[in-house]
C-alpha cells in the first residue's frame, strides 16, 4: 500500500533521510520506531505529501503522493503537534473536513460522539486539553474514512481508557475496512500490542523492516546456568548482549530460538530458559548493534 523508495531529504546541508526504503502492506498496522532524530516524522511528512523529496519517491497504492489530491483524499494524518484554526470549534472543523475530504461520513461523526463524551463540540478546540485535542483529531480522521492512516505519536497525552478506546476504533477500522495504519511511537509496549509489522529507523534509514513475529522469532533471550562456567555457542549464533549474575548467564542471541535451545543442550546446562524478546528489548539491542546502546554511566 505504501512504498517508499530511496527517499532522501536534507535540511540546510543536514541529511535527515538517507535513502529510505519502506514497504507497508494493505491492511497492516506498521509501527515505525527509532531513536530521537532518526527521521521518523520527516519520513511521515513525505508520506503525507507535505514535504518534497530531494530524491526517491513515495507511492501509495501505486501512485505518487506529492501534490496528488486523489491519493491524499484517501489518507488521514494525525501529527504529533496538532493544528486547528484559531477560534474553531469541533463542529466547525467537522464542516471543514467534510468539505475537504470527499468520503467524509457526517453520520459516522454523530455516531462516534458517544466515544468522546468529554468533548464539548461547541467549545474552541484550542481551549481543550492536549488529550482532548487529540481525541478530536482521531474523531475527524476516522470520519474521513481513510484507507491509510498516518499517526505520529498518536496516543501521547491520552489517558489509559481513551488510549484503549482509540486503538479499539482503529483496530475495528482495520478489520472491517482493511485500513492501513502507519504509526510512529516511542511507546513500544503499546506498539507491540497493535502492530503486525515493524520498521526500525536510525540515522535517516530504515535499518530493519519485518513482521513483528519474524522479528521476535529471530532474536531471543536465553537464561542459562552451566556447571562449567561460560556456555559455548555455535559460531552461527550472534550474541548481541551477555550478562551474568553468579552462574546464571543472560544472553540476547540472534537466530532461531529452538535451534539455540538445541545447541545449548550440548553444554548440559543446569538451567536453560529461552524467552521471546519484547519489542522494546529488540529495539534496544538492535540499536546497540547500530552504535546506539544504553551506556553504563559511572558518576
Amino acid at each position: 500500500m505504501i512504498q517508499v523508495n530511496g527517499l532522501e531529504k536534507s535540511f540546510d546541508g543536514f541529511a535527515a533521510l538517507r535513502g529510505v526504503d519502506m514497504h507497508v502492506k494493505k491492511g497492516a498496522i506498521y509501527g515505525l520506531v527509532g531513536p530521537n532524530g532518526a527521521g521518523k516524522s520527516t519520513l511521515m511528512r513525505h508520506i503525507t505529501g507535505v514535504y518534497r523529496a530531494d530524491a526517491g519517491e513515495v507511492r501509495v497504492d501505486g501512485q505518487v503522493v506529492y501534490e496528488n489530491r486523489e491519493v491524499k483524499a484517501r489518507m488521514a494524518y494525525i501529527p504529533d503537534d496538532l493544528f486547528y484554526f484559531m477560534q474553531a470549534d469541533t463542529m466547525e472543523m467537522k464542516r471543514f473536513y467534510e468539505g475537504i475530504y470527499p468520503d467524509f461520513d457526517g453520520k459516522l461523526f454523530y455516531r462516534m460522539q458517544e466515544f468522546f463524551p468529554n468533548i464539548d463540540v461547541k467549545r474552541n478546540i484550542r481551549r481543550l486539553s492536549k488529550g482532548m485535542q487529540k481525541q478530536v483529531a482521531f474523531w475527524l480522521a476516522i470520519c474521513a474514512k481513510p484507507s491509510v492512516l498516518i499517526l505520529d505519536e498518536p496516543v501521547d497525552g491520552l489517558d489509559p481508557v481513551m488510549r484503549r478506546q482509540i486503538w479499539s476504533i482503529i483496530m475495528s477500522e482495520v478489520a472491517e475496512n482493511e485500513m492501513t495504519v502507519l504509526v510512529s511511537s516511542h511507546n513500544l509496549r503499546e506498539l507491540e500490542d497493535v502492530c503486525d509489522h515493524v520498521g526500525i529507523m536510525h540515522h535517516g534509514k530504515v535499518i530493519i523492516e519485518r513482521s513483528l513475529s519474524d522479528l521476535q522469532g529471530s532474536v531471543s533471550k536465553i537464561q542459562i546456568a552451566c556447571p562449567n562456567g561460560i556456555p559455548k555457542l555455535p559460531e552461527n549464533f550472534e550474541v548481541l548482549h551477555m550478562s551474568n549474575t553468579g552462574r546464571v548467564y543472560t544472553m540476547i542471541v540472534k537466530g532461531d530460538p529452538k535451534e539455540a535451545e538445541a545447541a545449548l543442550a550440548v553444554c548440559t546446562p543446569t538451567i536453560v530458559d529461552v524467552l521471546p524478546l519484547t519489542l522494546e528489548e529488540i529495539f534496544i539491542y538492535e540499536m546497540g548493534g547500530a552504535d546506539y546502546e544504553v551506556k553504563d554511566i559511572l558518576f
Partner: peptide, 18 residues
Amino acid sequence: YSAKSANMIHALPVNRLE
C-alpha cells in the same frame, strides 16, 4: 508561517495550485 499549520494544510487533499 508556522510549521504546525503548514504541515496540516499541505497534508490535506488539496494541491498547491488549488
